[in-house]
Design a protein around this nucleic acid. Structure first.
Lengths: 153, 153
DNA sequence: TTAAATCCTAGTTTTTTACTAAGAAATCAT
DNA sequence: ATGATTTCTTAGTAAAAAACTAGGATTTAA
């Protein structure tokens, strides 16, 4: 039940972009440096975020990335699901009825549990925006508590 | 963010034992057959459940396993965490302060998110007992809806 | 024209998952 | 007693997924 580095690094990068929102394009090199992530790997993560319409890119020298919308409009949920797929504990809770593998799935006592887990996760991540993270970051900086992003792998 | 087969198969097996609660020892062979799981693999899953005090075993012929407590006393949460470890989206939210890897972790904007996810998952799974699953199963059987456990892998 | 950047894809290493296999120990039934 | 049945334990293995690395093509500001 762990998030992979895709989701974690991607969220870090998006938070970085959010902190620099309005400052023009930010290069992946600078993000990678600040967040201690490989540039090549970050490139692979930013690609789906761009295709999902969450970031815009400017190519060429002095180019980079910027949020495609304001930080209030981008949730942690959309970032994580773009990079990780649905935040569901099993595949069966997100399967189309078409591809049902399971005869008994009309009603399944374990499936209802997995659905509840899925809903609770979704509810949390969809309720948090990048702006919330920024606010959180700034209030804690003001009160002299060191606030940042973990270096946790 | 998926559960592994350890958690899913283990939960199936525990539900199976719960349905047979009070009937004496149930062999793994019969559980494995009903739930379509390899016996050898199930043995590896039941072992930690026994060590966690959730099931008791009777060795020898006509032996098997049974719940060590009533179905009202065993939560989905304790089953899943026994088999999967903490249901946390990252390691950092469950680490002891001793083993903090991360300098900035006194306050971390992403960590607080992961903690919220962790709490919401924990809250769901800890609120559901095997008895709830049995009740759920039986009410849906009565109303002529086929109720069972998925064959989902 | 050059340097800096995105963009794209293929490949590789490492880790984890999901088992398989096999044998020892215990115990019931005959 | 003996054999069948079952738990118990550990070692090994195959497949899949994760986590990158590498490199080249394209774009564009200076």
């Amino acid at each position: 039940m762990k998030l992979s580095t895709r989701g974690r690094y991607g969220l870090k990068a998006m938070f970085d972009l959010a902190l620099n929102y309005g400052d023009g394009p930010i290069s992946l090199t600078s993000i990678a440096e600040r967040q201690a992530i490989s540039v090549n790997y970050l490139e692979q993560l930013i690609s789906p975020l761009r295709k999902a319409g969450l970031v815009e890119s400017v190519r060429g020298a002095q180019g980079g990335y910027m949020l495609a919308k304001g930080p209030t409009e981008i949730t942690v949920g959309v970032i994580l699901t773009t990079l990780e797929g649905p935040l569901a504990p099993t595949d069966c809770v997100v399967m189309d009825t078409e591809e049902e593998v399971c005869d008994h799935s009309r009603y399944c006592v374990t499936k209802v549990i997995y659905e509840k887990i899925y809903e609770s996760i979704t509810s949390v991540v969809n309720s948090i925006t990048l702006q919330h993270m920024i606010d959180d970051y700034q209030t804690n900086q003001e009160s002299l508590i060191i606030s940042s992003i973990c270096e946790c792998k």
